[in-house]
Structure formats: structure tokens, C-alpha cells
């Protein structure tokens, strides 16, 4: 079978913040519809990696390719077009507080040029998918943490992205609310319509939903493989830590 062009290819990315090394030659790929979990201790460069992919942060060396096109040389217009194809779910939701739930979801659609009525139809569908269609007129401040994160997911989904980046989407949630977010994430992963690169500490999610798991530490990829391999026979200290969590 001919090897498919990966949707995302990260090729030897380096990034430093002053003296601190955030990424030290990270390489990975995400195929269309594939779910890849990136795991590793805090400060290992996971979030930086995601921000580099959508050019929220510029990297020092290496290249990132989306759908075969290098991201580095893109101009502002091309970057904005890229971002409209890549959904981003943040750890802290990052909703626009003064806008309603619906407007938050509509924002990218309408300002991206979509007709308002069509955009509303799509936004409501996205909200229905995260089970928040009845809360569309509320303000973010009126929602729980889990609901707010689901709005953020709906906002990303409504753009119908080809790739979704998840930056520890449950890290800021009360443990009792984590499930409602993970359930949606698993649904999306199982749909296999959207490629997903998920930075997470949720070992169970990674084992059940991810096609591959990448262990990252100190800006380097320590190991990479299917969840069964990484968690079943971890080669790195970090992988062993996650396995212990899974067994425990």
C-alpha cells in the first residue's frame, strides 16, 4: 500500500526561550483522521509544539508541513488560512467573555467570511454535538468549567478543521467534569474524520482513543508507538511512569 502524505509533519523542530531549550529536534507526523497523543512531564515542550504548528510561536530550526506545505514560509494570509483548517482547544478554554456561547462559536465562521445564517446553522450543530445547544445564549461566565471547555471544542469543531490540536483540555477541569470532555474527545477520535494531536496526561484516553502515543521529555521525543507498545513495554523512564499510572 502506498504510503499516504501525512496531514501534519513536524520535522526536527528546535525552539529556545533564551537559555531554556523548549524543543530540541522534535519530529512527528499525524495522518488524516489519526489521533496522536503527546505525553510528557510539565515543561517538556508539548504546548510549545502545538503553538508552533499554528505559528502562534515561531521556531528556531526545522520545518513544519501541513498537508505537505511548509508552514514556516507562509505569509500572514496563508497563516490565517492554515489556522482556519486547524482547530485549537486550549487548556484554559480562552473564550471571549463578553460574547455569548453562540457568538463565541460563530466568531471564526462569520469573520472567516461565512454567511451569518449558514454560520449559525453550523454553530448550533457544533453546540448540539457537545450537548450545549440550549445554552447558546449564555455568557461563558454563566457556565461550568466543563461546559466552557465544550464550548471551546464546539468553536473549534464548527470550523470543520482537518486537524485538531488539544492542549491539555482537561487539565484545568474539576475531576468530576473531566469525563464529559473526554467523552466528546473519544467520540471525535472514533469518527476518524479529523486528525487529532492531543497533548494530555489522561493515560486512559491515550490508551483507548489514540492511534499512537509520543512520549516527550526535555524537548525530545523519547519514544513513539501504538499505545499498547508504549504503555505495555515502555522504553523510557517517563513511559514507565505513565504505565504505572495506568496499572494503578
Amino acid at each position: 500500500m502506498a504510503k499516504k502524505t501525512p496531514l501534519l509533519k513536524v520535522d526536527g523542530i528546535h525552539k529556545r526561550y533564551g537559555d531554556r531549550v523548549a524543543l530540541a529536534g522534535v519530529s512527528l507526523t499525524v495522518a488524516p483522521g489519526e489521533t496522536v497523543a503527546v505525553m510528557g512531564p510539565s515543561g517538556c515542550g508539548k504546548s510549545t509544539l502545538l503553538r508552533c504548528i499554528v505559528r502562534l510561536t515561531d521556531w528556531d530550526k526545522g520545518e513544519i508541513y501541513f498537508d505537505g506545505r511548509p508552514v514556516g514560509p507562509m505569509d500572514h494570509g496563508a497563516i490565517r488560512a492554515l489556522r482556519r483548517q486547524i482547530g485549537f482547544v486550549f487548556q484554559h478554554f480562552q473564550l471571549i467573555e463578553r460574547l455569548s456561547v453562540l457568538d463565541n462559536v460563530l466568531l471564526g465562521l462569520v469573520l472567516g467570511g461565512m454567511d451569518r445564517r449558514a454560520a449559525e446553522k453550523r454553530a448550533l450543530a457544533a453546540l448540539r454535538r457537545v450537548r450545549l445547544e440550549h445554552e447558546h445564549s449564555l455568557r461563558p461566565a454563566e457556565l461550568s468549567g466543563g461546559q466552557r471547555q465544550r464550548v471551546a471544542i464546539a468553536r473549534a469543531l464548527a470550523m470543520e478543521p482537518r486537524l485538531m490540536l488539544w492542549d491539555e483540555p482537561t487539565a484545568a477541569l474539576d475531576p468530576v467534569l473531566v469525563g464529559e470532555v473526554l467523552d466528546i474527545m473519544e467520540e471525535l477520535a472514533n469518527d476518524r474524520k479529523t486528525g487529532m494531536l492531543v497533548v494530555t496526561h489522561e493515560v486512559r484516553f491515550a490508551r483507548h482513543a489514540a492511534d499512537r502515543v509520543i512520549i516527550l521529555d526535555r524537548g525530545r521525543v523519547l519514544e513513539e508507538g501504538p499505545p499498547e507498545q508504549v504503555f505495555g513495554n515502555p522504553r523510557s523512564y517517563v513511559g514507565r511512569q505513565y504505565r504505572r499510572l495506568l496499572v494503578g
Binding site: 490565517r80 489556522r83 467573555e97 469573520l111
Partner: peptide, 18 residues
């Protein structure tokens, strides 16, 4: 300014003007 909101807008592909 709320930097997180700005970043959210950027992630949605909004221009600086928007």
C-alpha cells in the same frame, strides 16, 4: 488586554484588525 482572548482569535484565523 486579555491576551488569552487575543490568542483565541488568532487560533481562529482572525486578522489583527478583526
Amino acid at each position: 488586554v486579555n491576551a488569552e482572548e487575543i490568542v483565541a482569535g488568532q487560533s481562529l484565523g482572525l486578522s489583527d484588525g478583526q
